[in-house]
Each structure stands twice: as C-alpha cells, then as structure tokens.
Write a protein that binds this DNA or RNA. Sequence first.
DNA 1: GCCCCATTGATGATGCATCAACAATCTGTT
DNA 2: AACAGATTGTTGATGCATCATCAATGGGGC
Lengths: 155, 155
Amino acid sequence: MTETTHWLSEPEQHAWRSFVRMQERLAGRLGRRVQAESGLSVADYGVLVHLTEAPEGRLRVLELARVVEWEKSRMSHHVNRMAKRGLVVREDCPADARVALVCVTAAGREALATAAPCHVEAVRHLLIDPLSPAELAMLAQVSNRILEELDKGCD
Amino acid sequence: MTETTHWLSEPEQHAWRSFVRMQERLAGRLGRRVQAESGLSVADYGVLVHLTEAPEGRLRVLELARVVEWEKSRMSHHVNRMAKRGLVVREDCPADARVALVCVTAAGREALATAAPCHVEAVRHLLIDPLSPAELAMLAQVSNRILEELDKGCD
DNA sequence: GCCCCATTGATGATGCATCAACAATCTGTT
DNA sequence: AACAGATTGTTGATGCATCATCAATGGGGC
C-alpha cells in the first residue's frame, strides 16, 4: 500500500450517497406496494413476465435463469416456492430428460394480470412522474453508460 | 377495475429496465468486490463508517439503526453477527439500563481502514469515472428528486 | 410509592440469496 | 459399446432481512 487513495470529493460523495439512498428506498417502496396489492414479490413478477412472454408459457429452468439474470440455483429454489403457491408447475421435457420445464398456471397468469397495473402505476408514480422526459432520458443514458462499464470489466 | 391502466411507453419501459438492471448489477459487483478484498459486506461497511464517525466510536442500537436507515431488529441481529466476528462489542449504558451500546473494536477500525480505499476505488471505477461531471450532477439531481417524492408519499 | 405506557431492544420463525457439492443425462470420441 | 467431459438441475448449509412477539426499563401523573 504505497499508493494513496483518491478519495471522493464532496459533490462525488453526495451524488453517491443520494444515489444509493434513492435506490434502496425506491426498491423497498415498490416491492412493498406490489407485494401488498397483488401478493407477488418483484422477483415473482419478473419470472412470470418472462414466462408468459415465452411460447406456450414455459421455459427451461436454465433459460429462465438466463433471461432474468439469476443463478440457476436461485431459480431452482424460487421455482419450487412458486410451484408450492400454484403460480407455476414443473414439467418434464420429452426430448431431454435433464431439463425441467417451468410452466405458468392459470393462477400465475391471473396473479400477473393483477400485479401488472399495480406495478406499472408504482413505477410511474415513483420514477416516471417526478422526472421530466429529459431527465428520464438522461437517467436511461447514464444507466446504459454504467452498464457498458460493468460489461467491460469482469473484475 | 373500470379504469384502464396507463401502460409504459417504449422509452419509459426502456429507461426503467436499464435503470433496474444497472442498479442490480452495480450493487452486486460492488458488494462482491468489497467483500472479496476486505472481508466486509457493504452493510458492515456502512455500520462501521457511522460508528467510527460517532464520538468514542459508539452508538446506541436504535441510533445506529436510525443513521443507516434500518429497522432496529435488523440492526440487532447484524450487530450480533458483527460482534461474533470481533468487529464491534456490546456495552451496557450506565445512565439507562435499556440501551445497548455498540462500540467499534480495534479490529473493526482496521477492517474499515482496509475496506475504505477498496470501496472508494470501486465506486470511482464503477460509477464516477464512466460519467462526465455533468452526468454525475444530473444523477444526483434525479436521485434527490425521486427521494423527495418518496418522502412525500408514505403510501 | 405505584401504575400506565412509551421506549429500547432481543428473539424466533419464515422466506430469500449464495455457495459448494452432487446427481443425472447427453454428446462426442475411440 | 464404453468412457470422458460437458450440460442441466437439485440439494443442504449458511447468512441475511423482515415480521410479530416478548421482556425489561424509564418517566410522568396520581
């Protein structure tokens, strides 16, 4: 440790703290609202969205994990819990005995249909409405810039 | 459900998805880096920062929970785990037998001293550097705007 | 002094995320 | 056919977050 750290300036620190605070509180509020009004967690919601968008409403566990950017293990556990609640069912794949297909149930589709307007309204109320169109565009741009950087370095 | 939902437009949806993706991946990367290089989670880091900034390096559990914006229960559990690792110690308060004081240990200060440069560098690399100063300022402004909205409605 | 009740905090239960280890199956090679 | 290695997914352990509940204490009014 011969090098000295390049500490954050005052405005940098402020930006970082505001950003983190905003993130945490936004995620918390959104999650609690959707959960309370629809009985689905944000995680459930994402899984169901991708499932219903898939042909025949079903996907392999690994494919599902890929689209929502989760680890396969997390998806496996989560699918079990969702199946226990009747939101999805597991099916075997005739072509490949290794793969486990996950399929939305009618109850899952219904839960999603209930959650979707609630989710959209929360997003609109908490993020879209408070910002001008220009600010929203800027936020998207900033997000994409950071995502590029994240993709670049796997460190 | 007589009212029809005001769905997100294409750019709105894109902004939202980019934002969420960025958040999740940024938090994940930052957490894993700090954890790997210093042995502290981001949660540990925040607790230690506030503790070391307090007079005599100690705070009541509830006060600590307030400054990091956690529930008291979460803090109680977390302090237990940190105490088990030797990062903090619990002390009794002579003036009020209800309160539990939490105090940083030397090991805690040392762990923080190790983690801090690593944390700062990760923040700089992942967030500050990819953005122009104007973009960073805009991000702070946007964050604060959203925070205002969050403070307004407790719904 | 004594009661009411607010404050402060701990605890146990539950669900979730991650990790490492494992099992089953498929595919290509010999 | 048989084996090696890759693919696909499950499982159990551990730590973390939240919720509801409980216990102890302090402070004010009578």
